[in-house]
Design a protein around this nucleic acid. Structure first.
Lengths: 343, 343
DNA sequence: CTGTTAGCGCTTTCAC
DNA sequence: GTGAAAGCGCTAACAG
């Protein structure tokens, strides 16, 4: 029969011939505060070790109303972007004495809601969330219920809350401006349909840059549905090229990959026929024949900041709001090499 | 002040003017079993909903000695291989009514031990572990303590335990034999230093294939330390090519990437100068000028099986041992194209 | 210095 | 049909 070796405080107390409180005091380093007899303390410690006593975290959490656990809901933990974020969150939470509990929403509001409930049932102390389309309501409920949380990567417009995101407008602007400075002018952009603020920000930046460059007549935004990105990207890339674009800005990693898949199988040459700039790097883009220029998000900073903000809120008991926008930087490589004049 | 809306069973009971037991019965669908009055039941349900009552999972877990949580410790959750596994484990555990708690060991036995303790403190019902070099002792303790667990991706030699792995010997054999059949004969292999059984298995398969092909005189295994794979791969690739090899088998995804980084910057052409076969796919290898041939592990199957085995053990209370080796398949592409005769 | 006790929120046996 | 009470393991206020 399988059973875990469960020795409780009581067992230790019994074995040591003292009360459970004594054991609790000693094992929690409060022997000074409670002036526990040194010998007794030693004995308790020894016996606890002998019995291989491990405190039951559940009981402790129940007792003091804090599980020292943070729920983290991202779109998809297997997506490299979120996997990296998760790793950094894992480290940051651990350093702060918390444990991270991860789940994926699949960019689906209902799933998101379900995951939130599951985490709340586990009595997480707070949440770090990547809100998806349609999750506004869920998030608002969280506010009303006074559940501490911080939004990551995106936020909900007009909703007062903590969040940590990239400065997406600047990112979109910089990426676009870079292409313009490289000599490209008919720049198209592929993003996602929906109301995601990070995508919207990048588009906004793109628009501004095009305007500043006097190219607003070429603004060309192609938004694909988040489901079946592959098929739609293929379609869009084709029409973008046929439409005479000489450069393409892809709003996310996944979009870039799908566009690249199509391009690789076509006769479009990067950057001669089409310059390309994406978001987020990774070895994926290093091996393309023209290594990709991409806008790099400071993942670690974003992850750590979100943990910092949440933990600060948790430990101070204060309801302050922090809205943080971090800056990233463009990593320039061959996919956006200066345009050849003679073409 | 921040506080979660915590309404307990007692609150509902009070509001409904009944005892907590009644509420518990009703809310757990046991009104039939306990023949609760229909009207009362309705009222309780209504009030529970009005008060937005959510059961406290911690209390429940403490009470019935099961947290319905499974701890999962992989090498690094941000590594694509483990990120994919994690995602599948997440789905599988959820379908079975469990929650997955993830952590990374960084291939470090001490960290592994610490993570195990953290999970045990959270009272997980069982563990899914990717054992790393030197973790034998930790795993053995788990056995002795009767903690239900299953090893994933690797196992501990001579230790009777549940595990789910790839049939690594066959994988190494198939990969090597493929190269041989493509006309390559001086095949080198890069793996990891250490005692990881998955790597050892792949090597074993490689050796067998070389022997079967009458090439045992060319067997050439280059094991790099897990830390700083990048630098060592670079060194090894160089010496492998200088040593006259015409093909290379990389034992893991990470190794393949590092070797590829070096190759990309060198004048070695794939597959003309060197054929290449790796382990595990992903879009990374699709964009290399010669898309990579790789041995594909059935990640989803492995992940799901590990959950199945663990949950079966948990729910049956039986101490059966299951050792599962799943088969993968070679995905053949250009990096191992048939060798040109005239060279 | 040390033990008793109450209680965190929940389930379930047992009594009415 | 319903309620009281015990107890999961822990901590801390309060008595001694």
């Amino acid at each position: 029969m399988i059973r875990k070796n469960n020795v409780s405080l009581k067992d230790v107390a019994a074995a040591a011939g003292v009360s459970t409180s004594l054991v609790s005091f000693v094992l929690n380093g409060k022997q000074q505060q409670y002036r526990v007899n040194k010998d007794v303390a030693e004995k308790v410690k020894r016996i606890a070790k002998e019995l291989n006593y491990k405190p039951n975290g559940l009981a402790k959490s129940l007792r003091d109303g804090s599980s020292k656990t943070i729920g983290v809901i991202v779109s998809d933990i297997s997506n490299q972007f979120f996997a990296d974020i998760a790793r950094h969150i894992e480290s940051a939470t651990e350093e702060k004495g918390y444990m991270a509990l991860f789940a994926s929403s699949d960019e689906n509001a209902q799933t998101m809601e379900k995951q939130v409930e599951r985490m709340l049932a586990k009595e997480v102390d707070g949440l770090i969330l990547v809100p998806c389309n349609g999750s506004r309501n869920t998030i608002e409920c969280l506010s009303e219920r006074n559940v501490p949380f911080v939004l990551l990567d995106r936020y909900i417009p007009d909703l007062k809350s903590n969040y940590v995101t990239l400065d997406n407008v600047k990112a979109g602007y910089d990426a676009t401006m870079h292409l313009i400075q490289q000599g490209y002018s008919q720049i198209a952009m592929v993003g996602y349909k929906g109301e995601l603020v990070n995508i919207a920000g990048r588009e906004e930046g793109y628009r501004q840059a095009m305007r500043d460059a006097g190219r607003e007549d070429f603004i060309s935004i192609h938004n694909v549905p988040m489901e079946d990105t592959a098929r739609y990207c293929r379609k869009e890339v084709r029409s973008i090229v046929e439409g005479g674009a000489d450069a393409l800005l892809c709003a996310t990693n996944a979009i870039t990959i799908q566009c690249l898949r199509h391009i690789k199988d076509s006769d479009i040459r990067i950057p001669d026929d089409l310059a390309l700039v994406g978001f987020d790097g990774g070895s994926v883009f290093d091996f393309f024949y023209a290594p990709l220029t991409y806008f790099e998000q400071p993942l670690e900073t974003m992850a750590r900041k979100s943990v910092d903000v949440l933990v600060e809120m948790l430990e101070s008991g204060q309801g302050m709001m922090q809205q943080i926008e971090v800056a990233g930087k463009l990593i320039v490589r061959e996919s956006s090499a200066r345009k050849k004049q003679n073409k």
